[in-house]
Design a protein around this nucleic acid. Sequence first.
DNA 1: GCGCATCTTTACCCGCGAGTAAGATACGTT
DNA 2: AACGTATCTTACTCGCGGGTAAAGATGCGC
Lengths: 242, 242
Amino acid sequence: MNHRRISPPAAGKPLPPGGGSPWRASRERLRDRELKRDAVIRAAAREFNRKGYHNTSLDDIAARLEVTKPTVYYYVTSKEQLLFECFVAGVEQIRAAFRDVRQLAAPARERLNAVLRHYGEAVAAEFGWCMVRAEDQDLPPAMSRHIKALKSEIDHGIRRLLREGVQDGSIEPCDPKMTAFALAGALNWIAHWYREDRSLSGAQIAAAFVTLFEGGLRPRGSTSRLVARAPLRRRARTALAR
Amino acid sequence: MNHRRISPPAAGKPLPPGGGSPWRASRERLRDRELKRDAVIRAAAREFNRKGYHNTSLDDIAARLEVTKPTVYYYVTSKEQLLFECFVAGVEQIRAAFRDVRQLAAPARERLNAVLRHYGEAVAAEFGWCMVRAEDQDLPPAMSRHIKALKSEIDHGIRRLLREGVQDGSIEPCDPKMTAFALAGALNWIAHWYREDRSLSGAQIAAAFVTLFEGGLRPRGSTSRLVARAPLRRRARTALAR
DNA sequence: GCGCATCTTTACCCGCGAGTAAGATACGTT
DNA sequence: AACGTATCTTACTCGCGGGTAAAGATGCGC
């Protein structure tokens, strides 16, 4: 998503022709302010994504918006808040995925897959980096607690779906905690490399991952070709611990 | 691994009783220096792990070692180098895993599993955080390139094992690139949460992950109980895209 | 065209933390 | 004892960057 397409030109309603009440006018102004505020947050997300939180100065963000630093502070109270807002925006997409899926009648594994696909897309999207790489260390305690709560909510949402899946038989029995960590980890990690390698869309990546999660590496079905040709390699010299 | 158990008391040879040549003495001093240098790097790794790279000052590291900042600079030329050394130390463990496994006669999937187990343990260990969360953004170009090369080597090592597995039939056909990303991502992510939740050992986590990677979520074997009881949930209100 | 609110700028402050210079201390060697 | 080297400390420098004060610009209602 390119914020330039959205913020300064402000595609929305070009103020109603009837001329408005004083209230109307003030509401319009407010709307404008929030658009600009969003643009600031988006710009921050982009820069954080490019250079990392600590390597991004507010001057950088301001420059990217072609304004000066105090202007940024006019819309936001601190750098921390900027990161926080990005985080929340990213997480919100995932929470939405859980809400959507709750309405479905499908077995838990399919609902889980749907969530994971949205999850992966969110991580690959605008606020993915902020959502995933934001360290609670960088934020004041109140925000940090809030973020942890949100993360925990998502984590437990996944675990819950896993448990339900084991119950309804659509998921192989497993440790929900470890499994949730593995799934979320694989998806979160997308934020680390997707910046450099955008050869696939977020949706494609998510789909590929879900396929792996579902089926696993070990071949299914006909066990015939399983042992087909394990070529003899050099003699084992080291006993491989564990 | 607790560096206090290792570095200052210096478990190794307590200087040979024969008394030494002047050379001997100077060698002993050198040895001492390198022990201390290691202690510095370990201390840095611990602090980076606790508070993050940017939130850790060299004064912090020095204080942890009960020395002053210039002492740290006596053993190391910059903060960046500190991070770099930690990174390399962590990666080295994983490279060792690849070397070990190359000697094995097992099918590729088993060799891959062995690598992944070592990988997971390394991430959960002392330098795991540095290896995994170090952003190339934080390092000067030369180091950054070096790190990327090492990362790439590991990545391609995994992809190669995947391809070999598909060839020898021990691994279900898959996209090696995406699969490698997923596997490594899940394991890398351990570094994010293992600090807070140490209820399992690195080896246990790695084992659990490998089990999931191998088998996947979808139940195997008898398809009998698969459709057993998918309880009808609320009607689907939203069409779940994709 | 005046006054007021909104928005943006210029010009600053200031603390933190990386990095250093130069002097103490300890110790082995002669 | 006297020197030299390795090690560590005290006491700095200095720039970056988060944050702010206060003065313009812009525009809207009257």
